[in-house]
Simulated scan of single mutants.
Amino acid sequence: MIGEGGPRNAYLTERPMADLSRRSLLLTATALAGLAVLPVLARSSDLTVKTPSGRAVSVSVWKAVGKEAGHILFSHGAASAPWKYQPLVDAWTKAGYSVYAPLHVDSTDHPDRANFQGMASWPARIEDVRALADHLGGPYIAAGHSYGALVALCLGGSAIAVPPEVKTPLRDPRALVSLAFSPPGAGMGFIKAGDYAPLAVPALIQTGDKDVPPGPGGDWKSHLLPYDEAAPGGSRYALVLDGVDHYFGGGICRPELPGPVQAEQLAIAAELSVLFMRAHAGGDKTALVTLNGRLSDKGPARLTVK
């Protein structure tokens, strides 16, 4: 799944839809479940960047709370918008990260959406993030959900097919790590087996056991293809959350869903994403020890590394 109302093919069109002990889970839930009900932090500013073709790209900006630890370039899911990910944005800004998120042309909130039907949104997304990365000018964390997770993984080295007019490779050496929530798998669109294998940076790939793609034979495990194809030894993590669907019950991407929001699981995902960024983008050894201490092959949060 990449998000409701995206490019019209079997994948891009979406229909609505150490071991954690019980004590440690309760502690995590108590400390973090409030993320989903925190008051929305005001967006500090917006900016506009221009692509080489002259197209204006609107970017939502949330500044870090306190000392800045780094920049996150975030790409939203198809048909969604940056402000529909507020629980993640709030967690990241409170952890010291500034978030920069372009409004892509496939968003239902984009005024020019009608001019970018079907697969035309794919090269436009690449243009968006390249223009924003050039504006940032330095190292950043590539993050995204669904269609946006595909973007984040490409910035980290994965090689998904693009039209011939799009300059390759898609890899941006300024992208320190890739943070991918529910990326697409092969057989559900234009992703082919082997496309994710060139991933060149540490990555955290998340899915849930209710995150089933639309269509016959859909399997939530397909979202782990980037993890499965990545070469071992590069600090690639897979996070599988029990009871989690593509939208955390409406917690991200589609807040209009009836829910209930999977708030505890979303809080765990946010916490682990911060530990991952601190460890692998920030060189924080304490965060690395803590993150690796959460490795587990059992629920509710199955975290593995290769």
Rank of each mutant, 00 (worst) to 15 (best):
W220E: 02
G234I: 10
G54E: 09
R174T: 01
L132T: 00
D297G: 11
G118Q: 11
R294Q: 11
V305D: 05
D109A: 15
D211E: 10
E68C: 04
L27T: 11
L88A: 13
D211P: 02
V201G: 02
E14R: 09
A143E: 00
I141L: 06
G218E: 03
Y85M: 06
R23V: 09
L176A: 14
H71C: 03
G215M: 06
A36D: 13
K84I: 08
G144P: 01
T48S: 10
R171G: 00
P226I: 03
Q265W: 05
A78W: 06
V61L: 10
E229L: 03
R15Q: 12
I141C: 02
P184C: 11
M188T: 11
D211L: 08
D134C: 05
I160S: 01
P111H: 13
G259W: 09
S60P: 01
A133K: 00
R254S: 13
R278C: 04
F248T: 05
L73W: 00
Q117E: 14
R294C: 07
A95C: 09
Q206L: 15
A91R: 03
W122T: 02
R15N: 10
G215A: 07
A78L: 07
A238W: 02
M119L: 14
G282K: 00
D134L: 10
G137D: 01
K210L: 15
S158D: 05
P87G: 04
L224M: 09
E264S: 08
I72S: 00
A29N: 08
V37E: 09
V212C: 08
V244L: 13
T108S: 12
Y237L: 07
V49M: 02
R55T: 13
F248A: 06
A81V: 12
S178R: 01
L291C: 08
L272K: 03
A95V: 06
P255I: 07
V212E: 07
D109T: 12
R125A: 15
N292L: 09
L32M: 12
Y237K: 05
E14Y: 12
A131G: 05
V305N: 05
Q206C: 15
S182M: 11
K210I: 09
T168A: 13
G6T: 05
A101M: 05
F190G: 04
V274H: 01
L12H: 13
V240Q: 03
P39D: 14
K306C: 06
W92G: 01
S58F: 08
G156L: 01
P255G: 07
